[in-house]
Design a protein around this nucleic acid. Structure first.
Lengths: 222, 222
DNA sequence: GGTCCGCGTTAAGAATCCCTTAAGGTTCGC
DNA sequence: GCGAACCTTAAGGGATTCTTAACGCGGACC
């Protein structure tokens, strides 16, 4: 699902217009026209969801709550011109941005791209990498096996790799960011932390890959 | 403090205008012009706070975080016209509404009244975290074992952790919010309060977890 | 005014945690 | 097969936190 976007919008004219705009911008829009149809869709099947709050059937806000229970997928709200309180509630429930009707197609595309460019950047304190979940706010990491009991350094290493999930991070960068800069002695210290981190990760340890001659990488697939 | 409102706004002309508007609407505005002055104000001394995000000194977003640590007071954000991302961040951090500059005085007053009418204060007078219940109004905490006899500082620590239930809260943040800022002496004071709090919590003490190298966390499950 | 009591703070030793180092083994690239 | 890079284990010691006891300030009560 490279660029699949779910559009939940009951207004036929507006929906058609948005679908066309998204297609031209290189996205792959899927359009459903009422809340009840949207209820049972798996949000993780999409890169982003555009949600109109004024819907027949299930109310938009309930859909947002429902999606947020299962997934971290970015959600962009469409709202009527003056409905500030809905915007406020939506954003507090975890929406990533809002667009006020009426809008120019270019604005919508720009907002979508902004959301995708910084997925979860807006103070979303949770990172998910494969089967590893990290909650920066709670300062807690968990895998399928349950919560992990990590030391501060282990947690920081994992969080750092998770923030750059999929890419190799150099040993120096990790040491700089995580370890006490005063002790720039032994180069083996990081190994030890990584080793213990792996043993605590259990099955998910396979995701913490060594990149030979460079450093480490947290694979985003198990 | 029947209608006391705190206005944090650096622009002199705008501030004056808002003060006048609020006075005419029957409020009692207090105006500070920079973030540093606003830092040490007790937010619970006001019924509502109006916060401009673009400030000299302490940044508005930091003020918002700071207020939210201590208090549930409604906060209304003033933001520049196009600064959507600031709005989004502010609302996620717990602001109650936003007003875009420039605005009509009537709009501001209407928004303030809507905030005050909203029952979110009443809702949050009681906090429940696992088997711990806290009534901010009665200033009373209880567990399965019955009501606790807490000192003011102990109660504040518990309430602060409860407001951010599940999240790790740093020692500094707790000390800042709860203890006398004049005495920034021994770093062990907080330990003692926590220790005594735990002994009073009885079985529920297990919920008050130490987050090593960070601070404490009140687990939302027993 | 004097005394008592509640409460925040300080101090100090104990307990716990965890970062680092060292040493020997393993894997990788060539 | 060789050297370099990396992994694992164990142990020491420093840092952080916990607990207990005592101090002192301030308000309440007599």
């Amino acid at each position: 699902m490279p660029n699949r976007i779910l559009l939940v919008e009951d207004d036929a004219a507006l929906g058609q217009q948005v679908v066309q705009t998204l297609s031209q911008a290189g996205f792959d829009p899927h359009w459903v026209q009422d809340g009840d149809s949207a209820r049972d869709i798996d949000p993780d099947g999409y890169r982003l969801i555009i949600l109109d709050l004024m819907l027949p059937g299930t109310y938009g806000m309930d859909l947002l709550k429902r999606y947020r229970l299962k997934s971290e997928v970015p959600v962009l709200i469409l709202s009527a011109r003056d409905d500030t309180s809905d915007k406020v509630r939506g954003l507090k429930l975890g929406a990533d941005d809002y667009v006020t009707k009426p809008f120019f197609p270019e604005e919508l595309v720009a907002r979508i791209q902004a959301c995708l460019r910084r997925p979860n950047l807006i103070e979303t304190q949770r990172l998910t990498v494969g089967s590893i979940q990290i909650d920066l706010e709670r300062r807690e990491a968990r895998t399928a096996g349950g919560a992990l009991s990590l030391t501060p350094v282990e947690f920081e290493i994992l969080a750092l790799l998770a923030r750059r999930k999929g890419s190799a991070v150099s040993r120096d960068a990790i040491v700089d960011a995580v370890l006490d800069p005063a002790h720039d002695g032994s180069r083996r210290t990081l190994d030890v932390h990584v080793s213990r981190l792996r043993s605590k990760l259990g099955d998910a340890a396979a995701q913490l890959e060594t990149v030979w001659g460079i450093g480490y990488r947290l694979a985003d697939r198990p």
